[in-house]
Design a protein around this nucleic acid. Sequence first.
DNA 1: ACTGTGACTCTAA
DNA 2: TTTAGAGCCACAG
Length: 107
Amino acid sequence: MIPAETFRQRVYAIVAQIPRGKVASYGLVALFAGRPGAARAVGTAMREVPSRWRGQKLPCHRVIKSDGSLTEAVFGGRQKKILMAEGAKFGRTGRVNMKICEWEGPD
DNA sequence: ACTGTGACTCTAA
DNA sequence: TTTAGAGCCACAG
């Protein structure tokens, strides 16, 4: 039988697949992880990510809120700069245009 | 098993 | 557009 992977491990696997220039909301990641509505739990999982995984290994900077705003409480303003460099489109209010940049999901 | 916590989300005003 | 309140879930103690 299938060894039960923890939700958190699943989340890390999903986030690792988010392509450059795209973003995914916590809720969307939860959905792909097989637990719709567990957006908050995804946030908790991201909080526990080892610093070494941050960056190319685990692009947690591409995980944002459903309305397109960023988690500045953790990244400080740095996150916006990184996403812009990756090609993410920002609106006038400083939020990502989810209509265009939201990840469509893993293959 | 229960309770508290938090990088969330939705609805209404 | 922004703020406020209630609902959600996984994880640690």
